[in-house]
Design a binder for these strands. Structure first.
Lengths: 218, 218
DNA sequence: CAATTTACATAACGCCGTTAAGTTTGTCAA
DNA sequence: TTGACAAACTTAACGGCGTTATGTAAATTG
């Protein structure tokens, strides 16, 4: 087993493989972006077709199958990108303050903001395809459980600091989840809760929950 | 213009028309029920087809178009039946007690129960096709606004009786709606809130909201 | 340069919603 | 009773869909 510098041929082969891999990933990206574009243009994924995606990006429909097993998997990966961005925004909110109560409020705001700014993704992730929540993402990517974990940790920390009455952090996090989801989901699904009203209801809900959970102020 | 008893002929004609009208309504019923059956069997209306409905009831697919303008209208009428049952159950809960606070709680329970017992309808009505909420039902049927009105009236009465802090009943009703919808929607869309847990969270939410809204007890 | 693999496209299958064009069956005036 | 007419229904067809099998031209490899 001799340790020698790679020959020109070996380098060429390696770089060639890399280049082709890059091209492959690029097309995958292109497909995903075209799909998201279609989702947004038609306000949902119900009436979008692989053939439309293919037409838009200038490939035949069957080429998509070289990058995604089927339509379902393409949609799933759109949702996955949503979960990733969602988790990152919650994390950022969590890291933004050391005040345990303010942090909790910021995480809640980040949650609502994601829903307000990405209604198509939110709908897909939490209203239409909740089964995606439990579907194992490929290659150890983050799943939504981690996102819920952020909220739970924020609750836990607030309890430990005495800013919230002691209790089951998981349960309290669940309660808060239903509150903010209620506002977000009705905002997205119905015409009765436009942005400003949804934001107002969210603040109100947080205040009420804070009182009910023993917070001095939230 | 003489007033005479209807001739045999006239009676026959009238009854014949009635009979055929009855047959028409019966087939319409049959179609609707077959559609609901398919919804329930496949857990949603996303993958159901008119041709499946037709096959199930023993008619050709095109016959459905004699009773519904298109697939959309058939689905809409399934939702309409949901809205009707929903409104009736809220009304019944409202009428069940004279205690303004208990009544509020009962209306909330009725709302949650409808969602727990009719997840497919609830999903259709409040999670997927919120646009149906504003679509005028044919022939002066009830719309969901009336259902929201029940909740608002319950809040109003509780305020007038001094059982809740004074405020905008519409806004408070909206707040309560987001709370119960949050629980119901997450129960239906995700695997994380099974029945018992959803019910527990609902009670908890109500208690917290009551405290936050100035109720003595709820 | 020949063999092989990669990256695509074409054709086809069965299903879909929907419309157009029949066909049967019942009604009704004469 | 008959013949026109309308109602209730079916069959055929169109274009679009997801998906698979098959072909093909180009890139890669030995």
């Amino acid at each position: 087993m001799t340790e020698t510098a790679p020959t020109r041929k070996q380098n060429l082969r390696k770089n060639s493989l890399e280049r082709r891999e890059r091209g492959k990933l690029e097309l995958r990206r292109t497909i995903l972006e075209a799909a998201v574009g279609l989702f947004e243009r038609q306000g949902g994924f119900e009436n979008f077709s692989l053939r439309q995606v293919a037409e838009e990006i200038g490939y035949s429909a069957t080429t998509i199958y070289l990058h995604f097993a089927d339509k379902e998997e393409l949609i799933f990966h759109v949702a996955l990108e949503g979960f990733k961005a969602f988790g990152e925004q919650l994390e950022a909110a969590y890291a933004h303050s050391d005040d345990v109560l303010l942090r909790l409020r910021l995480v809640g705001r980040a949650y609502l903001n994601f829903a307000l700014e990405n209604p198509i993704h939110y709908r897909l992730m939490f209203m239409q395809r909740g089964d995606f929540l439990e579907r194992k993402p490929p290659g150890g990517q983050v799943s939504v459980i981690d996102s819920f974990g952020i909220l739970r940790r924020a609750v836990e920390a607030a309890m430990k600091a005495g800013a919230l009455d002691p209790g089951d952090p998981q349960a309290v996090a669940g309660l808060l989840w239903t509150h903010v989801h209620g506002v977000a989901a009705l905002h997205i699904a119905t015409p009765y809760f436009p942005k400003e009203q949804a934001e107002g209801l969210f603040e109100w809900s947080m205040t009420i929950a804070a009182r009910g959970l023993g917070a001095r102020a939230l």
